[in-house]
Design a protein around this nucleic acid. Structure first.
Lengths: 131, 131
DNA sequence: ACTTGACCTTCCCATCGTGGGAAGCCTTAG
DNA sequence: CTAAGGCTTCCCACGATGGGAAGGTCAAGT
C-alpha cells in the first residue's frame, strides 16, 4: 500500500504519517523502486493505535511508550496503568484550570447588563489588579 | 520606565512586552536616546489588563478587541458581554471534550488490573477500531 | 575618566501537532 | 506518449512563550 491508501485506511493524514516517521514514532517505511513508501496491513493497525492515542490526548512521548508496551508481550499492565493514570491527572488539572476560569467569567458575564451603556463589570475586572 | 521595570510592575515578561508590540497588540513604545523603550504608568496599566485577559484564557485577537472596547468610552457593554460569552462557550466546549476523554480513560484505568501480567484493557481499547 | 556589570537591543531557535504549498519525480490510464 | 494524479522533500505558518547569542547603553564604583 502507498501512503495515501494507508492514510485513508487508518484515518491518519499522509502528512502526519511522514511526520510520525520523521520523529521516530513509527519505523521508517520500506520504499518501492520509485522511492514511494510501502506499507502493510500491520502498519495500518499501528497507525490506528496512534490515532486512538491522539484522540485520548496522549502526547508523542507517551504514545511512544504506549507503542512499545503494546508491542511487548512481557509487559506489565501496571506500567500501562501508571502511564494512563498520570495522563488522566494531567488532563484533570487542565480541566480544573479551565473550570476556574469559566466560573470567574460566567460570574462576570452574569453581572454585565449587556446593554447600550459603557458600564461593564467585565472590563472592571480586567482592569483591576490581580496578583 | 524601562522595559524591565514595566515587566516587574505589570507581571508581563519583557520578552512578551516586545512580542505584544511586534504583533501590534500594544502601541510601539517611545525610545530613549540610546534606543531603549520608554514606558509610562499608563502602559503598565495596559499590560496588567492584557495579563489579566491572558489569565482568563483570551487569545490575542480577543484581547485586541477587549483593549479597544476598554479604551472606547462610547462602547456598549453588550459587545463586551458578547465577546466574553463566546469565549466562555469555547472554553466550555474544550472542557467537555477533555471531560469526555477523562471519563473514557478513567473507566479504562479502573478496569486495568495494574499487575505484573500483560493483559490490559487500556491497550485493548487503543488497539480497537474507533471511527 | 574608566571599568564593570546590569540591563537593553535585535535576531534566531525551540516548543507541539497540524496543515498548506511549491517544485519536481513516479506511475498509470487513455 | 501525454496528462493527471499521487508521491517525494523542503519550507513556512500557527499561538504564546522561553532560551540564548552578539552587541549596544547606562549607571555606579574606583
Amino acid at each position: 500500500m502507498k501512503i495515501g491508501e494507508v492514510a485513508a485506511a487508518s484515518g491518519v493524514s499522509a502528512k502526519m504519517i511522514r511526520y510520525y516517521e520523521s520523529i521516530g514514532l513509527i519505523r521508517r517505511a520500506a520504499r518501492s523502486a520509485g522511492g514511494y513508501r510501502a506499507y502493510s496491513d500491520a502498519d495500518v493497525h499501528t497507525l490506528q493505535f496512534v490515532r486512538r492515542c491522539r484522540q485520548l490526548g496522549f502526547g508523542m512521548a507517551e504514545i511512544q511508550k504506549l507503542l512499545s508496551l503494546w508491542n511487548n508481550r512481557r509487559r506489565k499492565s501496571q506500567e500501562v496503568k501508571r502511564l494512563a493514570t498520570t495522563h488522566v491527572q494531567a488532563l484533570q488539572a487542565k480541566i480544573d484550570d479551565l473550570q476556574s476560569v469559566v466560573r470567574t467569567l460566567s460570574h462576570l458575564v452574569h453581572c454585565c447588563h449587556g446593554d447600550d451603556r459603557p458600564d461593564c463589570p467585565i472590563l472592571d475586572d480586567l482592569e483591576a489588579r490581580h496578583h
